[in-house]
């Protein structure tokens, strides 16, 4: 019972002391799976096929679309301030490269309904990053989206994927 109450407070976010749980603290209840998910998440930040900066733009766009302030404020990869500020207006902004725009367009379709992604949108990503890059991007979008959702339902203090 005490454990359940403790978990309830973890899930309910702010305790009397204002402490919110981290990813590592929540998954202490199931460390093996928590570690494997964290390892998968981290593997995207050193891909050969897609630059980490481009993936960070996609993660941040997902944070905007899912309404996660914690994910939006978190910095996985350092970006130019201007790109962060202009992210929601990327289609008409010259501060984003054609390759980044192709990935951001796919990100938005993936967030709304993955079945709505068109062949042209997929081809645009492949043009810049090849088939491997396209696969890596749709993998990353699924995992980033999942991490943001976990952050929301667990009301995490940060999106830092720490070890259990």
């Amino acid at each position: 019972m005490a454990g359940l109450l403790q978990f309830w407070f973890l899930l309910m976010a702010e305790t009397a002391s204002g402490h919110k749980a981290s990813y590592g603290e929540v998954v202490e209840a199931l460390p093996e799976i928590g570690r494997q998910f964290a390892a998968l998440y981290r593997s995207f930040w050193s891909l050969e096929s897609v630059p980490a900066e481009t993936l960070e733009l996609c993660r941040l766009r997902l944070a905007q679309l899912l309404g996660s302030d914690v994910a939006w404020r978190f910095e996985e990869v350092s970006l130019a301030r201007r790109q962060r500020d202009e992210l929601s207006r990327w289609p008409d902004n010259d501060g984003f490269s054609p390759a980044q725009k192709a990935c951001l367009e796919l990100t938005e379709m993936h967030a709304m309904d993955a079945r709505s992604i068109t062949d042209a949108q997929a081809d645009a990503v492949k043009l810049h990053f090849g088939e491997v890059g396209f696969v890596a991007l749709v993998q990353a979008l699924g995992v980033f989206d999942a991490m943001i959702r976990l952050g929301l339902i667990w009301d995490l203090s940060s999106m830092k994927v720490d070890q259990p």
């Binding site: 199931l30 993955a114 979008l141 699924g142 989206d145």
Partner: peptide, 18 residues
């Protein structure tokens, strides 16, 4: 929660790949 994180991302990836 973690199995949903896995399966939701995995299924959306599968759909995206055509």
């Amino acid at each position: 929660a973690l199995l949903m994180a896995y399966f939701n991302g995995f299924s959306r990836c599968a759909v995206s790949l055509g």
